[in-house]
C-alpha cells in the first residue's frame, strides 16, 4: 500500500479545502507543519468541488487550488468536478 498526499499553504481557503478532503476521505491524516498543511491518504484521495463549495460557502473552480497548493504525490486526474490522486490506474 502506498500513500498519496497533497499539501497546501496555511490559509482560510485551504482550511476549507482540507476540511472537504477529510470529510470525503475518512482515512485522511492531516499533518500541520510551519506555514503548511499536508494531508496523507492511503492509495488514493478524491477532492470534490461540491464539498469545497459547501465548506467555503461560495463557488469554487478546482483549478483555483493551484493558488494554494504546495505539492502532491500520485497520478493526477482532474475534471470540472473532481480531482483525484492515486497510485492505482
Amino acid at each position: 500500500m502506498s500513500t498519496v498526499f497533497i499539501a497546501f499553504q496555511t490559509n482560510e481557503t485551504s482550511r476549507g479545502i482540507v476540511e472537504a478532503i477529510t470529510d470525503d476521505n475518512p482515512t485522511a491524516v492531516v499533518n500541520e507543519q510551519p506555514a503548511m498543511v499536508k494531508v496523507d491518504v492511503p492509495d488514493s484521495m478524491t477532492i470534490y468541488r461540491s464539498t469545497i463549495e459547501e465548506k467555503l460557502g461560495r463557488r469554487f473552480d478546482l483549478q483555483e487550488m493551484q493558488v494554494h497548493l504546495i505539492t502532491l504525490s500520485g497520478h493526477v486526474d482532474e475534471s470540472d468536478d473532481e480531482f483525484t490522486l492515486s497510485w492505482k490506474q
Binding site: Q9, A35, Q66, V67, H68, L69, I70, T71, L72, V76
Partner: peptide, 16 residues
Amino acid sequence: MAFGFSAQSDESRHMT
C-alpha cells in the same frame, strides 16, 4: 516562504 511555496505550487504541475 512566499517565493518557495509559490514556486512549489508550479512544481506540482511539473512533477505531474
